[in-house]
């Protein structure tokens, strides 16, 4: 094959993107578990470990730029590199949301839980599934799977509606709930944004495969 060494570089970059995706998935799951368990130490760790995610993203960007400058990729190669670049940014921002959930946990501190967390962990689960699905679609270059990810965003939006209404109701019932309810609202918002960014990744997969940039599912929020 004429461009064997370029292909090896591209495969390495994709592997690294998957590693970054794994780090972000773990950060989301850990931040939620720590929130549920009121485990402030673990929340602190999530915040600290976001630096590794940021670092990885910068390294990937450098590698993409190096390959663009030295290999002058065209057509599908160019689209793959641009896609990797975009997705690494999306993942880094998802990591920031996980970090944000960790910070909210610290703000909540030792306060007793306002209510048992049910819908928020469900949102986290669905958003994480969307992230996994979008990365699987990337590896398999599967536009059908990418479209399925985009369609799941509606479910997360619906859950966000439910959480929002519940929390507003609790605030109305007792103004003493306002601060704790607001913290949880922030968490739900972070999760809703994670799902949106999984949709962005799926859109990039479709671009990489077809060359067409399309908005596949306009989020309600």
């Amino acid at each position: 094959m004429a461009r064997a060494s370029f292909d090896i570089h591209l495969h390495h970059l994709l592997d690294e993107l998957m590693q970054l995706g794994g780090m972000v998935e773990k950060a989301i799951a850990t931040s939620l578990q720590a929130l549920k368990d009121r485990d402030l130490k673990t929340s602190e760790r999530v915040i600290k470990e976001d630096d590794f995610i940021d670092q990885k993203r910068w390294e990937m960007e450098e590698r993409c730029l190096e390959l663009m400058a030295t290999q002058q990729p065209m057509a599908v190669d160019l689209r793959v590199l641009v896609t990797i670049l975009h997705i690494s940014v999306e993942l880094e921002r998802m990591g920031d949301y996980a970090e944000g959930i960790g910070k909210i946990s610290l703000l909540m501190g030792d306060e007793p839980p306002l209510k048992p967390l049910v819908d928020i962990p469900l949102m986290a689960e669905k958003a994480s599934d969307m992230l996994k699905g979008s990365l699987d679609a990337l590896v398999r270059r599967d536009t059908t799977e990418a479209l399925a990810v985009c369609n799941k965003d509606d479910e997360v939006d619906e859950l966000y509606d439910v959480v929002y209404r519940d929390l507003i109701e609790l605030m109305i019932q007792d103004p003493a709930n306002v601060q704790r309810a607001t913290y949880l609202l922030w968490v739900a918002h972070d999760l809703e944004r994670i799902a949106d960014r999984a949709t962005n990744i799926a859109e990039r997969v479709v671009f990489m495969v077809t060359g067409k940039l399309t908005e596949l599912n306009v989020s309600k929020y």
């Binding site: 094959m1 004429a2 461009r3 990729p73 057509a75 190669d77 067409k212």
Partner: peptide
């Protein structure tokens, strides 16, 4: 042509995978 060629032979040529 250089971002999304229609023909796979064009794609192979411009990405340097022409054989």
């Amino acid at each position: 042509m250089f971002t999304n060629p229609r023909n796979e032979r064009t794609e192979a040529y411009i990405t340097g995978r022409f054989s």
